[in-house]
Simulated assay, not measured.
Amino acid sequence: MEFFKYQGTGNDFILVDDRSKTFPAADQALIEQLCHRRFGIGADGLILLQPDSDYDFRMVYFNADGAEGSMCGNGGRCIVRFAHDLGIFDRETRFIAVDGEHTAVVDEENISLKMSPVSGIENRNGLTFLNTGSPHVVVFVDDLESLDVVAEGRAIRYSDPFQPGGTNVNFAQVLADNTVFVRTYERGVEDETYSCGTGVTAVALVANQQLALTSPVSIKTIGGNLRVSFDQLADGTFETIYLIGPAKRVFIGRITV
């Protein structure tokens, strides 16, 4: 099997051109093995690019544990770059993912990915919760550098208010110049990742609502820098949300499965 490795601000993915629909997508153990960093290729997730009669392509995303996942923003930017590299579209694309339709624009450096509208930010047991294509908790802290993201994030991820599915957990610290530093514990990976696209989107929206940060919000992650732009309607709904940042091919390989 030929595979492609892409990364978006350090969030890395195995990309497979599955327009023939021959990949064994039901084999969770295989996908988990391919994502394993010691015994496989190594990645935060695996993404299939499949055909769709109504769109340029379909994005099918699997977490590193092999289970099909909810929307992944950095993965979305990576599959857009992948589709562009394959010559599927020129500059603008329209594709379908598990959370619905997305559009994106490509330039030499960045992918601008339109995210799904967000209609509700809620308080769940004292924690700020919202869904940006995937479920996220946002917690603002004063010293993010020294925080034990894995221990703190895991405790919230598995806590009762977010069962049975659990949640991703983002810890954020406001810096100068409309910028937020974000670190994320991702469910399915069950660890801190270098970046999380739906997570930084969640942080930007909460920072606007609670702290009056204005669009576009600049995001610093361990893996690099992103921007999130958005419009807020009178009823509090966020629309025209764009996740903006780089996505790059790392290497191409072949593996026997």
Rank of each mutant, 00 (worst) to 15 (best):
I244C: 07
Q33W: 13
H84E: 12
Q232W: 10
L147R: 10
G165I: 15
K5W: 01
L30A: 04
D231W: 07
N123T: 14
P51A: 09
A172Y: 05
L113C: 09
G153Y: 02
L48S: 03
I244T: 15
T240Q: 07
I156E: 03
N11G: 07
Y242W: 15
A64L: 04
L226C: 03
A234L: 13
A247L: 06
D99F: 12
V180G: 00
E192T: 09
T237F: 01
V200E: 02
G66K: 02
R77L: 07
V80C: 08
M71Q: 10
A43G: 06
F181R: 12
G245W: 06
G87H: 12
A172W: 05
Q173D: 00
G100S: 13
E186K: 05
L113V: 12
V169C: 10
Q7K: 14
D44T: 08
K21G: 01
E32H: 11
I219D: 00
A212W: 09
F13T: 00
V150I: 15
Q232K: 15
C78M: 07
E190C: 12
R91G: 00
L86Y: 08
I96E: 05
A26Q: 13
G166P: 06
S116V: 15
I222Q: 08
L226V: 11
D160S: 09
V174R: 11
G100E: 14
D85C: 07
R58C: 06
T221Y: 09
S159I: 13
R77F: 07
E108P: 06
A207P: 03
D191A: 10
F171Q: 04
G188A: 07
G188Y: 02
V206E: 04
D143R: 12
V106H: 00
Q232I: 15
V150D: 10
R38K: 14
Q209N: 13
F129T: 09
L233E: 15
L243Q: 02
K114A: 04
V228M: 00
G73P: 08
G166D: 05
E145F: 08
S159A: 13
D235I: 14
I244Y: 11
F230P: 06
V169K: 02
L243V: 08
G224C: 08
P161N: 08
M59L: 13
G45W: 02
V139W: 03
G165W: 10
F23R: 01
S195F: 13
T256A: 12
L175G: 05
G45L: 01
M59Y: 03
F62H: 01
Y61V: 06
V182E: 00
L144Q: 08
E122T: 14
G126E: 10
A207W: 06
D85R: 11
T22D: 12
R38Y: 14
A64F: 01
